[in-house]
Design a protein around this nucleic acid. Sequence first.
DNA 1: CTGAAAGCGCTTACAG
DNA 2: CTGAAAGCGCTTACAG
Lengths: 344, 344
Amino acid sequence: MHKKQIKLSDLAEELGISTATVSRALKNYPDISAETKQKVIALANKWNYRPNSLAASLRNKETHIIGVIIPEVVNHFFAKVIKGIMEVAYDAGYRVMLCQSNEDYDKEVDDAHALLSSRVDGLLASLANHTRTFEHFYDFMDSGTPVVFFDKTSPEIKDCSKVIIDDYSGAYQAVESLIQQGCKRIAHLQGPGNAHTFQNRLRGYLTALKDYQLPVDPDLIIECPEFTLNRGRLSAHQLVALPKGVDGLFAVTDLLAIGAMKGFREKGIQVPEEVAIIGFSNWEMVEAVFPPLSSVSQPGYEMGRQATQILLKEIKASKNEEDITHETVTLATELVVRGSSKSV
Amino acid sequence: MHKKQIKLSDLAEELGISTATVSRALKNYPDISAETKQKVIALANKWNYRPNSLAASLRNKETHIIGVIIPEVVNHFFAKVIKGIMEVAYDAGYRVMLCQSNEDYDKEVDDAHALLSSRVDGLLASLANHTRTFEHFYDFMDSGTPVVFFDKTSPEIKDCSKVIIDDYSGAYQAVESLIQQGCKRIAHLQGPGNAHTFQNRLRGYLTALKDYQLPVDPDLIIECPEFTLNRGRLSAHQLVALPKGVDGLFAVTDLLAIGAMKGFREKGIQVPEEVAIIGFSNWEMVEAVFPPLSSVSQPGYEMGRQATQILLKEIKASKNEEDITHETVTLATELVVRGSSKSV
DNA sequence: CTGAAAGCGCTTACAG
DNA sequence: CTGAAAGCGCTTACAG
């Protein structure tokens, strides 16, 4: 590998001045003569000089890189979060090192260690479904590197900021709406593991049933290990086969709900006449299926933006040795009713 | 910011040995005594030592980071590419710095410069729709940093590897299939800009028409500036309003095709009886709409994997000062016929 | 207005 | 088997 990248000393040598002066000229320090600045900048452009940011980062003890750990990239919600993160980061002059835990605790730990080694200035993380210990995150906090959790987090984690959505209320509203339109046997397609978000949606479901004096039937609660159309489809088949049947369904995520719609249709069940369905996330595709899917909005883009804004604020405070007050932002959810259920 | 991160010299001091020995012990050099190694490793674990990879990278002149420039993260195809990239990179001990050009040429240039400054070991890039000059990529090649383009590239770019799909054949097949099932007035929802992929799909469409002696009607070709359901929907309305109507549609991407299905349905047009529709990408959601959408498969995950494998091979060759033979891999596409068109 | 020098935290050729 | 020393490419306090 013979990378012939230009360095400061190459410019300095050609101009017959010191690297210190070149460095200062490029950073537009006020006490460098205009003439010197011009010469330096002209030469830097001529040679296409790109400063080695490794060296600068090592020296300055900041990398202007944000680490991101996300369970899964191929997921519309998380993709929007990433977009929000990258935009805010870019506007502030930060770059993003992205890691996908793949819902694997060991990989999550590994990624955290690598990002720590890379000396990222801050970390944005969303937990894998089965993460139960958090030492790999505490390592960041202990080293003074701010961490902000988004979406999938845990109440056990203290002393850091979080951006979450109101999963509980969103779920409650959805199920309440099904109840109010007359559903008596409402199923729930549940998310895997002990992820707090999914637990909160389950809690919203259970509480709504209880508040309206509807019994909880374990047969109506199906844990879906992965979020695919097919899993939703098969769950619908399973529900249709129940002796007492099903007349409503709230799914932890839209993909499962859409899969379930397909599964019901395959069994000749009419939506919403025989089974009313509500999903969660409200992604664009809910408009494309027929009937359009009712869903609870989950503002991923906004979540990414806000989490990054908080992180940048904490990075800045940490750099200035100011005190940091952590905050938990809860983004509102909203039930959007479409053809797959009735408005009440 | 008072990051109290442990460094080699802290370990060395506590053990009363040199940093050189600590460094070698941690890297399991053969000529370090087993006893020393154990002591070092025990202490490193105790203090949770994370080597500063900035320092190591600066010294070794390699970062084990791959730069990725992609037009858009919120796009199922690109998300799958990213997943493929990250998996292969991770397995080889590489990390990913992700940049989203947002289909903006200036941002693409900016991202390229930043990645060059970060001294990534290699670059994977897919062009923004309106990119027409490539200096920002040539900078990498000139500096000896391998670049592999995937999906959106340009024949003007020489001397580097590419992983693309056979857009032309996929499009040709799709349109041929529509013709063979009797469609006479086949519309095309076209992608924006001069992106080569979209041009090739357009070319497949035009050639198929020509081969079957069907006239090309400019009214039937609609350029869609962005890929949204609504854009597909409105395009369908526009086509329905044509005096001569439309009886087939090939869309440059599934989201537009699904939007068009919705648009036709809104106008009371039956799919596939009155208009047969075929999309491009074959993403999971095509199974969810009704009727299920016929589509040309576009293996994004595989594309990400292969592009990364080639890049890693070139990085290795470059490091060993071996000659590099660039290759262009063309992944096959396949028409998958479903309910929105008829098999022939 | 400019330069010499030290230092960020590693790694490794060289010496012993 | 281990250490002293140089160096990766920057930045900046200090001196002039």
